[in-house]
Computed example of a mutant assay.
Amino acid sequence: MKPELTLHERTLQLCRYPVRDNDPLQAWDAADEYLINHVQEQDLNLDPTRPILILNDSFGALSCWFAEKGKVTTVTDSFVAKQGILNNLAANQLPDINIIDPLAELPKQPQLVLMKLPKNNRLLVWQLQQLCQLLPDDCTVVAADKAKQIHTSTLKLFEKHLGETKTSLAVKKARLVFCQANPNLAQPLPEPQQWAVPEHDMTIANHANVFSSDSLDIGARLLLEHIPSHNRYKGIVDLGCGNGVIGIKAARLNPEAKVTCVDESYMAVASCKLNAEQNLDNAEQVNAVVNNCLDGFEPESNDLVLCNPPFHQQNAITSHIAWQMFCDAKRVLRAKGQLIIIGNRHLGYDEKLKRLFGNVKLIAQNNKFVVYQSNK
């Protein structure tokens, strides 16, 4: 896929993160182009002293385009997106910008808000409520996504939580949403959603962008029944931890083990930390970190990796994340260490594991999911 975005006689070099040879996925989309074109054509008189706020930038197309036009703050829940933005800023020799996660305080008095609509409506509501508390009267808000992803219900969320909302015509299958903040709609940000898992004696909390907001997802429910307990497990990794329920269960079953929970979502890691404090006698047994898979982990440093791999990166369906997780797991496992994964039956993870480890064993299944184990 081409790495150059050329608009208005300007070219940016943009790559997804991590960089892969012959990557079929592009680092920007038509919604990015539509947002850029709209702002350029409006010829806004941007104040270099006031913030430009960018929400949910995929890999830096918006951040790079506007980095020279004002004090840019980009909000992303994705560690992978953040690394992509940093790499692309450096590749194009652009000024540094401020990059924060959705739980951080937003800068005061922004003059322009550009938003890529998140996949998760709970995160959208969170961000709209943040903006409603913050935006001055003269701030312009423009959001964008594929036209097919902007539903009547999406526009109603803008109307309910931010203010009067209008849409553009579709261009290259993308559409813009324009909104004027109404301070009378401002309300306190919601607390993390909480629910009980009585069969495992847990109370689980989720921040807005964490998968399965109000119940234990059925994949995790199956995997929880097949977490091993043995005194030889000194180091355990919950890879792609989400709210941390798998790692917390592993910590309970293996009280002498040090458990590391890893996710690329800042909200997931924050949820995991909260859940460890609520559900473990010794919360320090679990260390939750934001990372791209197991980048930087020492080789042969753990005995067990538990993994529920995603098969999408933002809005793109892809298998490369699962493959990277499996390869990283093999690298960080000690000899005779185990990788236990759960996945949808149709994804064919058993073939990948057999190719990588030379062995794979089916240890559980239901009509939707399979649990496999491979030994190093």
Rank of each mutant, 00 (worst) to 15 (best):
residue 1 M to R: 12
residue 281 D to S: 15
residue 259 V to Y: 06
residue 26 Q to L: 11
residue 227 I to A: 03
residue 307 C to D: 00
residue 265 S to F: 11
residue 41 E to I: 00
residue 172 K to I: 07
residue 194 Q to L: 09
residue 241 C to T: 02
residue 4 E to S: 15
residue 231 N to L: 07
residue 27 A to D: 11
residue 45 N to A: 14
residue 274 L to E: 04
residue 75 V to Y: 07
residue 363 I to C: 02
residue 131 L to M: 08
residue 128 L to S: 04
residue 356 L to E: 10
residue 40 Q to S: 11
residue 295 D to L: 14
residue 172 K to R: 04
residue 28 W to K: 03
residue 188 P to A: 04
residue 370 V to G: 05
residue 31 A to P: 02
residue 339 L to I: 00
residue 266 Y to A: 07
residue 266 Y to M: 01
residue 85 I to S: 03
residue 202 M to C: 04
residue 66 F to L: 13
residue 239 L to T: 11
residue 219 G to C: 02
residue 205 A to F: 03
residue 192 P to G: 02
residue 87 N to K: 08
residue 41 E to C: 08
residue 287 N to M: 15
residue 255 P to N: 09
residue 144 A to L: 02
residue 183 P to W: 01
residue 42 Q to V: 00
residue 187 Q to S: 14
residue 96 D to V: 14
residue 259 V to K: 03
residue 101 D to A: 09
residue 42 Q to I: 06
residue 163 G to R: 01
residue 164 E to C: 09
residue 264 E to Q: 10
residue 245 V to F: 07
residue 348 G to D: 08
residue 276 A to V: 08
residue 10 R to M: 11
residue 103 L to H: 01
residue 112 L to E: 01
residue 129 Q to Y: 08
residue 266 Y to T: 01
residue 227 I to L: 09
residue 332 V to F: 11
residue 347 L to H: 01
residue 147 A to I: 05
residue 115 M to P: 01
residue 339 L to R: 09
residue 166 K to R: 15
residue 256 E to G: 05
residue 319 S to I: 15
residue 220 A to G: 09
residue 83 Q to D: 03
residue 97 I to L: 06
residue 320 H to Y: 08
residue 366 N to T: 10
residue 187 Q to L: 14
residue 308 N to R: 12
residue 168 S to Q: 04
residue 345 R to A: 01
residue 48 P to R: 13
residue 175 R to D: 02
residue 374 S to Q: 10
residue 237 V to N: 10
residue 20 R to C: 08
residue 145 D to P: 08
residue 56 N to W: 08
residue 367 N to V: 04
residue 276 A to M: 02
residue 41 E to Y: 08
residue 266 Y to N: 00
residue 358 G to S: 11
residue 117 L to N: 00
residue 342 I to R: 08
residue 220 A to Q: 04
residue 346 H to K: 10
residue 177 V to Q: 02
residue 80 V to M: 11
residue 3 P to R: 11
residue 77 D to I: 05
residue 74 T to K: 12
residue 212 S to E: 04
residue 84 G to Q: 02
residue 118 P to G: 03
residue 248 I to R: 05
residue 127 Q to W: 01
residue 244 G to C: 10
residue 276 A to R: 00
residue 102 P to M: 03
residue 162 L to A: 04
residue 30 A to T: 12
residue 106 L to F: 14
residue 178 F to D: 03
residue 254 N to D: 09
residue 241 C to V: 06
residue 112 L to H: 00
residue 235 G to T: 05
